[in-house]
Each structure stands twice: as C-alpha cells, then as structure tokens.
Amino acid sequence: MNWRAIATIYAAEMARTSRTLFQSVVSPIISTSLYFVVFGSAIGSRITEVQGVSYGAFIVPGLIMLSLMTQGISNASFAIYFPKFIGTIYELLSAPISFVEVVTSYVGAAATKSAALGLIILATAELFVDVRIAHPFWMITFLALTTITFSLFGFIIGIWADNFEKLTIIPLLIVTPLTFLGGTFYSLDMLPPFWQKVTLANPVVYLVSGFRWSFYDTADVSVGVSLAMIGVFLAVCIGVVAWIFRTGYRLKN
C-alpha cells in the first residue's frame, strides 16, 4: 500500500475544495436554509407534530441525509471524472499505485467533504430548531456509512460516465426523486396505505428512517433493517468497484 500516494491525492482533493469553497460548502448551506424556511417555517407551522417531534426538527435528519447522498455522489463522481475528462488520469495509471489507493483516496476525500457538510447543516439546523440526538454513536455510524456508500456510488458513476450528461443523469433522474420520495420531509404514516407499500421499495426510506431514529428514537422501519439495507448497498458498491479494478473498465484497455 502506497500510503504517501493516498495522503497526496487526499490532500489535493481537499485543497480543490478550498479553491471552490463557495460551490462546495456555501451553496448546500444556503439551499438547506431555504428548505428550513419553506418546509420548516412556512409549511411546518401548519403541521403540529410528527412522531412526537416538531415538524421543523423532524425534517433535520432527512435534510442531512439528502445532502450526504447528493454531495457524496457529486463530489466523488466529479473528482474522478475530471482527470478522465482532461486527460491527467494518465498519471494515476502510470504511478506505482493500485486501484485500491485511488478509490481509498478519492472516496475518502469525497466522504470527508460530505460528512463535514452534514455536520455543518446540523449546526445550521440548531439555529432554527431544537435538535436533540438520542443515540450519538449510531448517528455517527449512519452518517459515516451513508456518506462512504454514496461516495463509492458517485465514484462508480464518475468512472462510468464518458460525458457530462451521463455524469448528472443518475443523480438527477434517480437519486433526487428517491431522496425526495424517501421520507425526507414526511413520515410514512402520513401517506395513504397503498403508497406506504410502494415507498418501502425505495432504499432511501431505510436510510432516512434509521438516521432519524438515531436522533429522535422514532422510526418508520426497524433500525436493524435500516442498517442491513445500507450494508447491502455498501457491499454492492464495493463489489462493482472491485469489478472495475479487475477489468480496468473505462480506465485501461
């Protein structure tokens, strides 16, 4: 293992964030604050409580989850797509490193960034509503697992994409709808029975539910199922990355 190479790529990726600080950090904070204003204050004032929590506080875990997923994907997919697009990928391929180092460093940096962002959003939320965390250990566990899984997913998208359209099509057409329909802004029991069943097919439901449990001790589905689901998704992503590693898909011929 070439640890120095991992540290080098990781540091370079983090430095890239500081160059695009506004885009990377400020804009998600602004959009999250907008969610609070629109959903928390304007609409939330008409909803009294959900599962024993004020609506404004209820949506906090969902909002953090939303940004962990979307930011994890966009950070990691862009980070690996960019060198492919401009051609500097040659350096990664000719360096004395294996794909393990490449994945560890890029996914690690993307996960760090989105996890930091999740914590910033949590701090921002504290300004609007009273957030309490019932199970801090599990909160961090869910946060870490989700951000790593979705950064891996983003990395796969970045490898697969050979143009900018492909880079954005999966987040836009699949991930965003799933997160919005995954109970970010509502509890499943607010839905008609038929749609409750349909929603259970959405993997995001399990992530949001489990994460919310770590805050307020209430969940739509059992915590064990939530953990199992994220474990499955993580395993699938690792499997695909391992396959890319073995075949050199879209990287080597």
Binding site: R4, A12, A95
Partner: peptide
C-alpha cells in the same frame, strides 16, 4: 509547484 509536488507524492517519494 503544487502539481509537481503532487506527482512526487503520487509516486510515494517523501
């Protein structure tokens, strides 16, 4: 300078 140092690190050199 940064991009040159990056390459050195990528090759595992101190």
């Amino acid at each position: 300078a940064a991009t040159t140092k990056f390459s050195r690190g990528l090759f595992g050199k101190p």
